[in-house]
Computed example of a mutant assay.
Amino acid sequence: MVHIGIDTVNLNGEGFTILSKQGDEVKCGEPIIKLNLDLLKKKNIDLSTMLIITNSKEKDVQFIEYGQVSNKQKINR
Rank of each mutant, 00 (worst) to 15 (best):
T49P: 02
G23A: 10
F63T: 11
G13M: 07
E58C: 02
M50D: 00
G67N: 04
Q73P: 04
N36I: 09
Q68F: 06
V61N: 06
S70C: 00
L51Q: 05
N12G: 10
V2K: 09
L47D: 04
S20I: 09
N76C: 14
T54G: 00
I4Y: 01
D38R: 10
I75L: 11
I33R: 00
I45H: 00
I4D: 00
G67L: 00
F63A: 06
K41H: 11
N76R: 03
M1T: 15
I33F: 05
E25F: 11
K57G: 02
V69N: 08
Y66E: 12
Q73W: 06
V26E: 07
M1V: 11
T49Q: 01
K41L: 06
E14Y: 07
N55I: 02
G5F: 00
L11S: 07
K34A: 13
K74R: 08
T17A: 12
I6M: 13
E30Q: 15
I53M: 15
S48T: 14
L51C: 07
D60H: 04
I33P: 00
I32K: 06
K41Q: 13
E25R: 13
I4K: 00
H3C: 08
D46S: 03
N12P: 01
L39I: 03
L19N: 10
E14G: 02
T49V: 02
T54P: 00
L47N: 05
D7N: 15
G29Q: 08
I64N: 07
N71V: 15
F16R: 10
V69D: 00
G23L: 08
K43G: 03
L11A: 08
I18F: 13
T8Y: 02
K43T: 07
L51F: 14
H3K: 11
E58F: 03
V2R: 15
T54L: 05
Q73D: 09
I18Y: 14
K57I: 00
Q62W: 00
I53F: 14
V69T: 12
P31R: 07
I18P: 01
Q68D: 14
G29P: 09
I18W: 09
K43P: 04
Q22A: 12
I6T: 14
Q68K: 15
K59T: 13
I18N: 07
L37R: 12
L47R: 03
I6F: 10
E58S: 05
R77C: 06
M50P: 00
Q62V: 11
S48N: 14
